[in-house]
Design a protein around this nucleic acid. Structure first.
Lengths: 113, 113
DNA sequence: ATATAATACCTTGTAATGCTAGGTATATTG
DNA sequence: CAATATACCTAGCATTACAAGGTATTATAT
């Protein structure tokens, strides 16, 4: 990315990261925050803690996600696991459709001409 | 889109619209603002005037775009045509690569499991 | 004549969010 | 006992899509 406009990468991630997080939780049933960051990293998607944790709290407040602390069976810092609520599942389906449209619409730009 | 989180559609468009605009200008060589909005609309992409014009001015100031007024040969309100600068062309290539990565990375989420 | 609509551009202010840069706490390793 | 890794959190900043307003020109309808 060029020196100027290096913030474009930040901008285009808005919404996209939300979709990635919800999709990963759907796929794994439940995940905790730190684990999500590692999973995304493996996929080539960089999401900082300062981005993820506020997002998880927002989505929990909005009842898109259900959060549960787990302290048993593990040592170290307790982990907060997230799973999709019913409305979260529905929201994700809508997001996927919208995302799919965007990808297809952009493809049309390349095809035309 | 659900009642809540209806702003997600707004958020995910950040950066995406910039990519669409630059790609369309590259393909058509030159375009004016109002025309861009109509073109995007035809593609299924909604971009409001209050979004487009400030963006075009930003990118002109940053020398990503070159702007030229055209008043001859047409009646009605004068039109401001935009074309890609050299650095704009380079920036667009970088954006396309980044976008491609994002699309591919998200595909991996669906594939894994 | 004179509203109305369509074209074409612009600006102010708001809401939302990714990230930086800090912080806290627990457990392990040198 | 310092350093590292894990795991969560927060305040403040920079950025951008949009709503809602505006200006100006031409064509069309009343």
């Amino acid at each position: 990315m060029a020196m100027n406009y290096k913030n474009w990468a930040t901008q285009i991630k808005k919404g996209y990261l939300e979709l990635c997080v919800l999709s990963l939780i759907e796929q794994h049933d439940k995940l905790y925050g730190f684990q999500l960051i590692k999973l995304l990293e493996e996929l080539g998607i960089s999401m900082k803690e300062g981005t993820l944790y506020p997002l998880m709290n927002r989505m929990t407040t909005d009842k898109v996600l259900i959060a549960k602390w787990e302290t048993k069976e593990i040592k170290g810092h307790p982990r907060k696991f997230y799973s999709l609520s019913k409305s979260g599942t529905k929201l994700l389906q809508e997001m996927k459709m919208e995302y799919q449209s965007m990808v297809e619409n952009y493809l049309k730009i390349g095809e035309g001409k």
